[in-house]
Write a protein that binds this DNA or RNA. Structure first.
Lengths: 213, 213
DNA sequence: CGGCGTACCGGGAAAAACCCCGTATTTCTA
DNA sequence: TAGAAATACGGGGTTTTTCCCGGTACGCCG
């Protein structure tokens, strides 16, 4: 009896070909393939065989890896979750582990490494590549120090305007507010982001993903 | 006799599994797999079977898709080049076509679409997904207007300082120049980037990849 | 040689950004 | 029901940015 395994990745080519590869290992049978978290929710609902393992891409539209991981560990705690990502992004790794996955693999992993990882997860319940194991402590530290800042709706709105060539006067007009008011938002964001100039604010906003280029 | 095909992608999992998929189509034989452009150069040098088709990832370390495409179309004009990318990035598409590839496929293409594309390329010499065909003209326009700006060494240096919380006075001190001088660099960069504020400059520098977060 | 481009520097002024001092409302929650 | 927290606004002020004007020095080239 083969081990049922599930896949979620928004890149169809990768999704399908990864499936082929897993089946070529001989021990696995792909029982569910999804393009994102939402898709996976629907497919699992009408699924007779629930997979033992799930490979989840971190970056997916509609419902991303983190959300999907949270949902899966809440509703299907029996499934072992493995994060798959192309970027070696500290924040993403932390988030996935916090959400409940038990391994994080990069997409440039060698197939034999993947096979080894899957075997180890089935036996020990977890797997860590040497590299990610080493600086795991550092990652957690980093995650704590840069704790998620919570912004209000207005602050978020102002922030995206601040990351443009508009002057504060123009932003005030755009938001139908007094210059003093946006002055206040600037001030509170400077504090929350620990910066002291608009350029710094802008840079931090990009780094933290509040705005995109 | 099967059709020899080559692959280049820095994500090993994708590389290997895509190979499996191509071979599962029945008509193709993967004769060369590379992790980047440099790797491909070495491997092609000691290669008895030169592939008819090459699938190239756009984003690779060491030597990326664009450079690899340029090199291949210069040294192996017989190989039909197909760009593979995960991002639907206008600039990347243009660059790859300009460098000499004859098709651009997204990684979330369906496998049957890939098979169709390969067949069409072998018959007609090119392939365009409907979507990318439609706004091709628009893309070219866009590519022209944002022509590559050439920066001097000092400008580049100043630019990275400008993308920080330093004041111009501090930057001047850092670069051992007068405030007036860096004033000149600011001015010339504003012109080159078509912006009128430091925030705009900063944003453009990021967008164009002159500085990173 | 004189013209030309480049890097470099200075003064001054207007605009924008930054940073205080306040007040006042609403809304939510301990 | 007191008190955060979010929202909104005003009058000051300094510093920084932005944008002009002007100039010198150096090398290159026809």
């Amino acid at each position: 009896m083969k081990i049922p395994i599930g896949l979620a990745d928004d890149h169809q080519l990768f999704l399908k070909s990864l499936g082929l590869m897993l089946e070529s290992f001989g021990e696995y049978e792909v029982v569910v393939e999804a393009l994102n978290g939402k898709d996976l929710q629907h497919k699992l609902a009408h699924q007779k065989t629930i997979p033992d393992l799930m490979l989840l891409d971190v970056n997916m539209p509609l419902m991303d890896g983190v959300e999907t991981t949270k949902w899966l560990s809440a509703t299907h705690p029996g499934i072992k979750l493995i994060a798959l990502s192309m970027k070696d992004d500290d924040k993403a790794i932390i988030d996935m582990f916090k959400a409940g996955c038990c391994a994080y693999l990069l997409k440039d992993t060698h197939p034999t490494e993947l096979e080894k990882a899957l075997k180890e997860i089935r036996l020990k319940g977890y797997y860590n590549a040497d590299a990610s194991n080493v600086n795991f402590r550092r990652l957690l530290m980093k995650a704590e120090e840069k704790q998620d800042v919570i912004l209000t709706v207005k602050e978020t709105q102002f922030l995206s305007f601040a990351c443009s060539e508009l002057t504060y006067k123009q932003i005030a007009a755009e938001m139908n507010l007094s210059e003093r008011t946006i002055d206040g938002y600037r001030e509170s964001l400077f504090q929350k982001f620990h910066v002291q100039s608009r350029v710094g604010l802008c840079l931090e906003a990009l780094r933290r993903g509040f705005v995109t280029l």
